[in-house]
Nucleic acid binder design. Structure first.
Length: 558
RNA sequence: UGGGGUAUUGUGUAAUGGUAGCACAAUUGAUUCUGGUUCAAUUUGUCCGGGUUCGAAUCCUGGUACCCCAACCA
């Protein structure tokens, strides 16, 4: 149990909130959700679900109309729902509280705790002081309550230009916590809001609004990330001065992952500069990207559970995410045979027009998944990597004179290698043993390897997209002088294979369907698929000990 | 530099004064009609220095390192 759940459990035991647990997930609709957000909403919805009567609100923190768009609201709703969480009746928008917040602000003005300040942004920075030096009081700090009331009302009416005035809390310009040095509560913004339209000319800042949103909704445990720890005294101040419900804020560390970036700002940059295909690019750690790539919600939730919750920055190895998705997909996805880089094979002693339908197990991890028939014929494809003319010691697959098993079919022996004028291998000739039908030899002889295959006349031609890490560096921020994170983009992160062969059972595959291509990895049908051509995304490869052996071999040679 | 946080194997995370455990990664072996899965095993750790105690990752004390804060972003 993590430290936050421990606190919640204690609070229930002591009856701190009358045993209630009300959490919330408060995204700003200024971008798509990523797996870091998943950590947060799995925590919030998770805690609510684990406690009887608990509930978790989904609230859009839409206080800055210049950054926010309705389409982001849509995507966030879809992503949270897809991840398996439901907010029930509890869908809220900060913008629904704008009137209430305005009243609260007036309350502070009436009590001499807030004032309208005419300093511009640069002047305000000068007056704020530095980390070590205290700030100076604004010359407008001691306006009369009446003048503040009048000015603030006129700010709301839209009388003043953007940036000309703000409403500030009157706290302490010499506080060692810079957030307490008379922070801005309202700024003038003549901007169209995606929900309130042109009703407002002033918008609350996050610091003013956020605590109020939690308070209005009766949140008990307000869970947020570490950087807001410094803001907690300010939220406390607002809530105490207003005398309203005061949730308990608890901070935890953001998720960081190796080989990727996790800030909405950077993701936006990649999208806007067309360095990726969009917010749902399968290489991105966005929920929509991971969905498109073939990740299951279950695997992402399991990942979020395993990484834990803490109070210090840490970077999780992306291998853990990959492990979680393999673990889930191994149990749930049906096996099929697909050849990514085809090499034609002809069996000389197999009848020309013959076709046989072999029994294949759909999922050895799940007997319920049943079996299917896979067509076999004289000409088929195998993986180029499954043949070597001059194999090293540890290579177990097909080679001249060697016998291997074709999965669910026959034992075949390579008898000849056909090459083109350039010496490239273009075809293999084999003989087969009819007695091994189904894949077992009656005499009990063994082969070192079983390889997959796809019958040529029955094959479906498809496109496959292979993905690698988006960045070449574990930490993309680790850059040479004068470069930014984009200089670490991996030019090999997407590899498109347009001439792959898959077994005919895949003809009916629908968008987002997941499969294991035997011996290769997990693949999912991409939204770019057409009636003419199915496109598959590789979600993640299978663990590949042969690749490791090869790598080691290379290292030894070099 | 003022303030607020945090330090446990390569990476993450447990242990709340009593054998430093688990997962991922790595390595080895067994099983296997997927070089997959499964199973078994191995390697590596309490930021540093003092103190209290029979006993300290945990308590005290002094250091060190890292993160956050000087947007009218969230």
């Amino acid at each position: 149990m993590d430290f936050i759940r421990t606190i919640v459990a204690e609070d229930i035991l002591t009856g701190k909130w009358n045993g209630e647990v009300i959490t919330r997930f408060p995204p700003e609709p200024n971008g798509f959700l990523h797996v870091g957000h998943a950590k947060s909403f799995c925590l919030n919805f998770g805690i609510a679900a684990e406690n009887e009567g608990g509930c978790c609100h989904l609230r859009f923190d839409d206080t800055n109309p210049v950054m926010e768009e309705a389409r982001y609201v849509e995507s966030i709703l879809e992503d949270v729902r897809w991840m398996g969480w439901s907010w029930g009746e509890h869908l809220y928008y900060a913008s629904d509280y704008f009137d209430q917040m305005y009243d609260y602000a007036f309350q502070l003005i009436n009590n001499g705790l807030a004032y309208v300040c005419d300093l511009d942004a640069e002047q305000m920075r000068e007056y704020r002081g530095t980390l070590t030096a205290p700030g100076k009081d604004s010359p407008y700090r001691n306006r009369s309550i009446e003048e503040n009331q009048d000015l603030f009302r006129r700010m709301k009416e839209g009388e003043f230009k953007d940036g000309s005035r703000v409403l500030r809390a009157k706290i302490d310009m010499s506080s060692p916590n810079l957030n307490m040095r008379d922070p801005v509560m309202y700024r003038i913004l003549h901007a169209e809001h995606h929900r309130t339209g042109s009703k407002w000319f002033i918008y609350p800042t996050y610091d003013w609004a956020h605590g109020l949103e939690d308070s209005i909704e009766g949140i008990t445990h307000s869970l947020c990330t570490l950087e807001f720890e410094n803001h907690r005294p300010l939220y406390n101040w607002y809530l105490d001065k207003l005398g309203v419900h005061h949730p308990q804020q608890i901070e935890f560390a953001r998720l960081e992952l190796t080989y990727t970036v996790m800030s909405k700002r950077k993701l936006l940059q990649l999208v806007e500069e067309n360095l990726v295909m969009g917010w749902d690019d399968p290489r991105l750690p966005t929920i929509s990207g991971m969905r498109r790539r073939g990740y299951s919600p279950e695997s992402i939730r399991e990942f979020c559970r395993r990484i834990g919750i803490n109070k210090f920055n840490s970077t999780i190895d992306i291998a853990l995410l990959e492990h979680c998705v393999r673990e889930d997909l191994n149990k749930t996805s049906n096996r099929v045979m697909a050849v990514l880089n085809p090499l034609k094979v002809v069996i000389d002693n197999y009848p020309d027009e013959e076709e046989e339908w072999m029994d294949a197990v759909n999922n050895p991890e799940d007997p319920e998944a049943g079996t299917r028939k896979v067509p076999f014929s004289k000409v088929f494809y195998i993986e180029q990597d499954d043949f070597m003319e001059d194999p090293p010691k540890k290579f177990f697959r097909l080679a001249p004179g060697r016998e291997v098993r074709l999965r669910y079919a026959f034992f075949v022996t390579c008898t000849d290698v056909v090459k083109d004028d350039n010496g490239q291998i273009i075809e293999l000739r084999c003989s087969y043993d009819p007695a091994t039908r189904g894949g077992n030899a009656p005499d009990g002889r063994k082969v070192k390897s079983t390889i997959h295959w796809v019958s040529a006349p029955h094959a479906l031609n498809v496109e496959v997209k292979l993905y690698d890490h988006l960045f070449t560096m574990e930490n993309p921020e680790n850059t040479a002088d004068g470069e930014d994170f984009k200089s670490n983009l991996n030019p090999q992160s997407l590899k498109t294979l347009s001439d792959c062969m898959v077994e005919p059972s895949l003809k009916e595959a629908k968008c987002l369907d997941r499969f294991q291509f035997e011996r290769l990895g997990y693949f999912s049908v991409d939204s770019d698929s057409t009636n003419e051509k199915i496109v598959f995304n590789r979600t993640v490869s299978l663990r590949d000990t042969w690749a490791k052996i090869q790598k080691k071999g290379h290292k030894k040679q070099n």
